[in-house]
């Protein structure tokens, strides 16, 4: 039997389970977290501390009827939720979670398919997300949904530019598009991570913040959730969706958050490497547990941000992208290029 095939199938199942499980339980984290932030209890009836709530929600969503309103573009209407979820699962294929770090398989890398153009592939698939918004909004035959789709597209385009520029900066520093190479270049403590200026990337903190904001905007999270601004556009592009159509959009949103957090961790926070490998040998010098810890901390920040700020308007959002983020990202790219490529060339 082909071991490679077994490997593939196992990882495929694992990825889907990871994506779906995260989506389900991040909803729980979000609800519970929001509740505590607002001095409430949150879900508490279904299971201990409401832990079975996501399963109940899932069962409810699946058992509901899919409503197709009159006059919709049915093929596109059905396609849109798939566009929201499938690229998200695809991206997980190439994300390395890191080595196990302990036990008999300490060096075993948890990754479905490592690619040397992994970063490019992630960015390519991530931009499909905009299609889901556009198709969902357009095909619903609902004016609110159309406005939301238009907002979503202009937002997606505006924020993809600084996102990619910042990613290019990192690629330049690490010299590779392979995610594991990028992580290994940051090994050896948190002062080596890309968000610290010590790495030769003088603008590290700025590019980290730029990337984080872009990740928030790309995943349509508050305060950039203009697409589904509930006090303006009811629910935006998924107003007309019910049952699993809505469920897929919902899961897609959370899967995208996990992806965004993973990518930020890999590019800026040293991936699976320990922040202080020599001093505190907790969890080992490199372990996927470090990786998970980092992405969940980032996700918590995202949740906290959502429940703290009001929503921005479309205009100030675009102003932020074009007037602040893109100039900063460009200066950052140029500065890093000068530091890393041109100065060594001149022998400085």
């Amino acid at each position: 039997m082909d071991l490679n095939l077994v490997h593939m199938v196992l990882f495929l199942v694992g990825i889907i389970a990871f994506a779906a499980g995260n989506a389900a339980y991040l909803v729980w984290v979000e609800r519970k977290g929001a509740a505590r932030i607002q001095r409430r209890t949150g879900p508490c009836e279904v299971g201990p501390a409401g832990l079975i709530q996501p399963l109940a929600d899932g069962a409810k969503l699946m058992s509901k009827q899919i409503v197709f309103p009159d006059g919709i573009d049915k093929p596109l209407f059905m396609l849109a939720p798939m566009f929201a979820m499938i690229p998200a699962v695809m991206i997980f294929v190439t994300i390395p979670f890191g080595p196990v770090g302990f036990g008999p398989f300490a060096d075993f890398m948890i990754v479905a398919r490592e690619m040397n153009i992994g970063l490019l592939m992630i960015l390519a698939f991530a931009s499909v997300n905009v299609m889901a918004l556009l198709l969902g909004g357009w095909s619903s035959k609902n004016k609110y949904a159309v406005i939301s789709a238009i907002r979503g597209v202009s937002q997606g385009i505006a924020f993809e530019i600084p996102l990619v520029i910042t990613a290019i900066t990192i690629v330049m520093i690490s010299g590779s598009m392979q995610l594991s190479t990028i992580v290994e270049a940051q090994a050896g403590g948190f002062w080596n991570w890309n968000w610290m200026p010590l790495q030769g990337n003088l603008f590290g903190p700025v590019s980290f913040i730029v990337f984080f904001i872009c990740f928030l905007a790309e995943t349509n999270r508050a305060p950039f959730d203009l697409g589904e601004a509930e006090s303006e556009l009811i629910a935006g592009f998924h107003t007309e969706y019910s049952s699993m159509g809505f469920g897929l959009f919902f899961m897609g949103e959370y899967a995208n958050i996990v992806i965004g957090a993973s990518l930020t961790t890999i590019l800026f926070l040293g991936g699976w490497t320990s922040p202080f490998p020599e001093f505190v040998p907790v969890l080992g010098a490199s372990s996927f547990l470090w990786f998970l810890l980092k992405i969940y901390l980032l996700i918590w920040t995202v949740v906290l941000i959502r429940w703290t700020y009001p929503r921005v308007t479309l205009w100030s959002l675009l102003n932020l992208a074009w007037k602040i983020l893109i100039p900063f990202a460009l200066i950052n790219l140029l500065g890093s290029a000068v530091l890393i490529k041109i100065l060594p060339m001149l022998g400085l």
Partner: peptide
Amino acid sequence: FVLDLGGFTPLLYAFD
């Protein structure tokens, strides 16, 4: 009002 602007949490503080 803050809820209209998309911020949910101040509503519940005010309600408290």
